[in-house]
Design a protein around this nucleic acid. Structure first.
Lengths: 207, 207
DNA sequence: AACAAATAAAGAAAAAAATCACGATTTATT
DNA sequence: AATAAATCGTGATTTTTTTCTTTATTTGTT
């Protein structure tokens, strides 16, 4: 479905999507590639190339239809395909993600949180319950969950990853810890590397 | 200093750095490119090419010296150059970042947090105080802070950005909100786009 | 001492991504 | 009606990034 969209393109598509949502709210019906490119500081032909992948034709001198374009992006990026996930680690970051501004409308459905701190157990966050980590394998199986969002402190990252990998059917780990996890080949890890992100930010723009 | 390192490379360098820190802790003195490449699931010649940018020679049949390599990465990515920053928005995400596992050792020094909720004012988080947002312009000037880390809810993102841009000397915004900010050309925004990140994760690995 | 295996180094080739350039089309303006 | 301006679409070009290939070096083994 969205397999053939390169990473960089899908990154830009989500930014376009956000701008389009804004235009929708304001009742603006069309948008041009230069408008978008200026907002994002990129080349306008880049924007058109990206839109071409969506098979969404624009109109000369007018631009693209906001609602059509927005729908196309949602279809292409699979926002309608719901993927269930658990958050592992109910610290500030875990709670922030549990409350994150409509992850749901992007296809990510967070079902529950897990932690090992007894004080946190059974608390509800944004309608999601916090369970003890020992309940994870059982619940993952019953609810058929394959994605874990790892938000524990760095020093526990590997052991918690080991635990969920060997005791449950979790196959995908979205890793928010700075640790580079060691995992078997059938487990896919996506590193949300905030340090790297900051370094890129810093390298790109400072003199 | 690190201007000429491409984004992708600096991203990988931080991952290498994390692995190297782990090797250091374990007292392992040398590391080979295949070891690293296997851990990260990338090509080994890629690793060597990256290291070549660091001007750090390896030794055939042995590999690279862990400590030398780690130092080189730190120098190249400017971890020693401290950049002061404010966190704007003391919600869960803001607090998570304020407590984040040694941002400091990567050159990011968070001085304080800001919020508009009276209940949060004057609380200390990880030795950093939370101030009312109205104090930001003054403090930014006195402390000479040019970086704001924006962690407010999406619906307030633009107005808060407008406020800090026009009332203070903030020049760089690390934007953790899903909003695509409208800013004047002299302001640099770096989007930490969690939605995009998830989409890439989802597109890359699911069938 | 000779040989085999692992690895770095470096250049070549391939692939991917971004930018440029220009023709075609549409809308607005004179 | 003619002209101008804005914008799309797209092929060509350039740049960047990744992968492949080969050679040389080092270490361990027979």
């Amino acid at each position: 479905m969205s397999k053939n969209i390169p990473e960089k393109v899908s990154n830009r598509l989500t930014l376009y999507h956000s701008i389009l949502a804004e235009y929708m709210e304001q009742g603006i019906e069309s948008i041009s590639s230069p408008q978008i490119s200026q907002r994002l500081g990129i080349d306008d032909s880049q924007v058109r190339k990206d839109f071409k992948l969506l098979n969404n034709a624009g109109k000369c001198r007018v631009g693209y239809l906001v609602s059509e374009l927005k729908d196309s992006i949602e279809k292409t990026l699979g926002f309608a395909t719901v993927k269930d996930a658990f958050i592992v680690g109910a610290g500030h970051l875990g709670l922030a993600l549990a409350k994150y501004d409509n992850f749901n409308s992007y296809g990510l459905n967070i079902l529950a949180l897990f932690d090992n701190d007894p004080h946190k157990i059974d608390i509800q966050v944004n309608n999601k319950q916090i369970f003890h980590i020992s309940k994870l394998p059982n619940l993952a199986q019953r609810l058929n969950v394959e994605i874990a969002i790892l938000t524990v402190p760095r020093q526990f990252a590997q052991q918690v990853a080991d635990f969920i990998i060997q005791s449950s059917q979790i196959k995908y780990i979205w890793n928010f810890t700075p640790a580079v996890l060691k995992v078997p080949p059938h487990i896919k890890v996506w590193n949300e590397n905030l340090i790297a992100s900051f370094v890129q930010f810093a390298c790109k723009d400072f003199e």
